[in-house]
Design a protein around this nucleic acid. Sequence first.
DNA 1: CTTATCGGTTTGTCCGACAAAGCTAGATTT
DNA 2: AAATCTAGCTTTGTCGGACAAACCGATAAG
Lengths: 254, 254
Amino acid sequence: MSATPLFRRIDVAPAYQKVADAIEREIVNGRIKPGEPIGTEQQLVAQFGVNRSTVREGIRVLEEGGLICRDSSRRLQACLPRYNKLATRLSRALILHEVTFRELFETSMTLEVASVEGAVERATDENIADLAGNLERSAAVVGNPADLAELDAEFHVLMAKASQNRVLQLAREPAAQLFFPTTEMIVGGVPEGGARLVEAHRHILDAITRRDKEAGVLWTRRHLQDWRRGFEKIASLDRSVEHTYMEHAYAARQ
Amino acid sequence: MSATPLFRRIDVAPAYQKVADAIEREIVNGRIKPGEPIGTEQQLVAQFGVNRSTVREGIRVLEEGGLICRDSSRRLQACLPRYNKLATRLSRALILHEVTFRELFETSMTLEVASVEGAVERATDENIADLAGNLERSAAVVGNPADLAELDAEFHVLMAKASQNRVLQLAREPAAQLFFPTTEMIVGGVPEGGARLVEAHRHILDAITRRDKEAGVLWTRRHLQDWRRGFEKIASLDRSVEHTYMEHAYAARQ
DNA sequence: CTTATCGGTTTGTCCGACAAAGCTAGATTT
DNA sequence: AAATCTAGCTTTGTCGGACAAACCGATAAG
């Protein structure tokens, strides 16, 4: 696979990249822990011996990557990258690749089933309480598609949290960000759609509480199949996500 | 969920962020297509009416996000974000969150099974030829853990490609980047490990070719269970990924 | 037809500067 | 004395200008 080269690969990375890499190393290696300050721009200028503009370009890179962030007073500090923020980038990439709803549906089915299985096995009392709270709020807005869609997305996030599996939480996030925004137009377009959604959530939560994996999986599948049927009424599964958004939600929002 | 506010949210984002957002909008909306030039920094300075340093900070943000890249002569252009690059960020985030191998294993099992199911259903002749080529090369280096680990990772990427599901490809990538680097130490640590790995790949490819979903899933599960058993010989599943890396691969490399 | 050379562009980096916002600590008020 | 206010210092965000190195295109030389 690899021949040993005569010369080491010459390093021609621009200075701002080296600045970013140097800071990244310190964070990933744990020498700077999340929450600890990176130092002021002036200090970084002194330490790296480059201009402040160069330092700032390096900072932008790390900031976008989620490795550093700013505290209340805009000072730099290391931070734990938020899945959510990073997932947004991935979702955007998916849109640009013109993925279809069929791909999205298939993968979401896999991940949500895995999610409910984990939740049935390992949900804590607190997880269950959170889900119950969400269910209660959902029942109160069953006639309002916009609010219900938001709570539906939250329900599934809580379910993934209840699985106690952070890798799973991460893996499902990009798909969820594309998947669940469509809930609004589907719930709004199908009579009794809201009621069915809340009913499904109720059964799922019940299954999690009773540690009944079979029921949990069954109702999760039904829940997603409902979504799929609703979707097929308004668009083709084989069209790109972006295209369908353009014609529905997006047009209405702007 | 939302009251209609009297005033529109006042916009206080820094200029470099606005520059980045403006360019991002053009790309995501499709007005600038992947491969098309963004323009020189000087042109952006003129269009946005801000300083070049500000423009450059905005460019760094987009570059890191994978939305723009540079052609051979360092000129800016829109590009299709590569899953791989973005997945690297997510993998890094997972390390910082100190995820355990148990989480990684559980999720990988889910995703690889989904992957093989998709491949059995939809693999093209070209996909199968690629997998066969990989298998052949693997068989040739069965005694070399480093090369074999690399080919194993490639095999699973090819399998995900064969599923024809880009969302799935994306979802499995971050986990794969953490999961498969361990293959080297596992294959190296277990006698006959290399042979078992190649054998499993052979059965999986055979199942894909025969469109036998049951066999494909069975051998994929066995393949991953092998990995898990090998892993348990050298570390605990409940330790963090980062911690284990530190003691094995990482120490050897530097 | 290939090679060499030469401006013109563009990027990467640097310097110096300034307004706005936050923080600090001393001064002022109650 | 405690709370409050204010003035100064620090830090960030932005700006203008500058220059070397790399790159492009075109022209000149072999």
